[in-house]
Amino acid sequence: MKGQTLTRLKESASQTAGPYVHIGLTPNFCGITGVYPEDLGIRMVNEKTKGERITVKLRLIDGTGSVTKDALIEIWQADADGLYNSPDEPRGKADPNFTGWGRQPSDPETGVFTFETVKPGRVPFMDGRMQAPHISLWIAARGINIGLQSRLYFGDEEQANAEDPVLSRLEHPSRAATLIAQRDGNTYSLDIHLQGEKETVFFDV
């Protein structure tokens, strides 16, 4: 006998962004000018943004050890006080001069993605414990069938990283290093490895 049915839908299946993702998401970068005034997400801060200015430099490395040149990365982070610029942020109003969201193609020569942003404050885990400062990552490219989710943590936040509820869920704590950007001056750098010995911890969240 058949009972009641749920009226849920299935999420639309993902498909790769393909080799021409920049036409759609950063058209000015790939020479399609005059359609949008500027590429969305290329500026996260302005002169009034509160907090410590930092530069985040990422590279995306494939299973052969080559630095990819055709990918796109989006980042999402809290402001300097740990608040998200989103209507679903229940704890207060985020810095109106900080978008929290950035999107970049990589440099065509070096493969480096560069984000000018601020260091985020801490955000609670579900149970109220504080997470270490982090930036959420979303990666799309040819050969990636569904956008990859991960995070960037900060190498100079040793104490906070040690008590972070997400990092502490890792089966092999040594893999936390794949998420931790190292600081040099005001720049944090992280290589994201798609495969291999140093494969980055990706998320299913």
Binding site: W76, Q77, A78, Y84, N85, S86, D88, E89, P90, R91, T99, G100, W101, V123, P124, F125, M126, Q131, H134, S136, R151, V205
Partner: peptide
């Protein structure tokens, strides 16, 4: 967490 639930 709020990092996943919120968005631009």
């Amino acid at each position: 967490t709020l990092s996943e639930i919120t968005g631009p």
